[in-house]
Amino acid sequence: MVGLLKTLFFIFICYYVFKFLVKLLAPFLVKKVADTMKKKAEEQFREQQPKSKVKEGETIIDKAPKNTSQTKNSVGDYVDFEEID
């Protein structure tokens, strides 16, 4: 019976010590993991960006081509109709 009580007491103490240590160390661990993930995401983003030959301070304006093939009446023909009672 005494051995059982010692075992339960030891488990109880270990549980609360572990819980206390997790509360102290968790913010540091979470921050470290978040920083690592942020760095990986930045590296992936930089790899996806195309290499441009634009110098810093230079401005490039891309103009859309003029679309002259469309007219204002491109919706369709107007059909006049009468209501039947």
Results as ranks from 00 to 15, higher is better:
70 Q>C: 08
73 N>W: 04
6 K>G: 02
7 T>A: 13
61 I>V: 15
57 G>K: 09
32 K>V: 02
69 S>Q: 08
44 Q>W: 07
51 K>C: 00
41 A>H: 04
5 L>R: 10
8 L>A: 15
78 Y>I: 15
28 F>L: 12
58 E>V: 08
83 E>H: 10
15 Y>P: 00
83 E>R: 14
48 Q>Y: 03
70 Q>I: 10
51 K>Q: 13
31 K>G: 01
28 F>T: 08
37 M>S: 06
28 F>C: 04
49 Q>A: 11
18 F>E: 05
70 Q>T: 13
67 N>G: 02
40 K>W: 01
53 K>S: 13
63 K>H: 15
10 F>R: 15
38 K>C: 04
31 K>S: 07
78 Y>H: 12
7 T>C: 02
8 L>R: 14
72 K>D: 11
61 I>R: 04
70 Q>Y: 13
14 C>D: 15
36 T>F: 06
43 E>A: 07
8 L>E: 15
65 P>K: 01
53 K>L: 14
37 M>Q: 10
13 I>A: 11
20 F>S: 06
53 K>E: 12
6 K>R: 14
49 Q>P: 01
20 F>N: 09
66 K>Y: 02
51 K>E: 08
60 I>P: 00
19 K>S: 09
16 Y>R: 01
71 T>K: 09
75 V>A: 07
34 A>V: 04
15 Y>A: 08
46 R>K: 07
35 D>Y: 04
49 Q>H: 09
22 V>M: 12
65 P>G: 00
65 P>E: 05
58 E>S: 14
80 D>G: 03
67 N>Y: 10
84 I>V: 14
71 T>Y: 08
16 Y>T: 06
50 P>C: 05
74 S>L: 14
11 I>T: 13
54 V>I: 15
82 E>Y: 10
41 A>Y: 04
64 A>Y: 08
46 R>S: 09
11 I>G: 06
15 Y>N: 06
56 E>H: 03
17 V>E: 03
62 D>N: 14
56 E>N: 05
76 G>D: 01
16 Y>N: 06
49 Q>E: 02
33 V>H: 07
24 L>M: 13
84 I>K: 14
36 T>G: 05
49 Q>W: 02
79 V>R: 09
45 F>D: 05
52 S>H: 08
15 Y>M: 11
43 E>N: 04
66 K>R: 08
76 G>S: 07
27 P>H: 08
72 K>T: 10
27 P>T: 01
65 P>C: 00
50 P>K: 00
14 C>Y: 09
55 K>N: 12
56 E>C: 02
24 L>A: 10
60 I>F: 12
65 P>T: 01
42 E>C: 02
83 E>F: 11
73 N>M: 12
78 Y>C: 02
60 I>M: 05
19 K>H: 10
7 T>P: 00
40 K>Y: 04
48 Q>D: 02
11 I>S: 09
43 E>L: 06
17 V>D: 01
23 K>D: 03
61 I>L: 05
54 V>N: 06
14 C>T: 15
59 T>R: 12
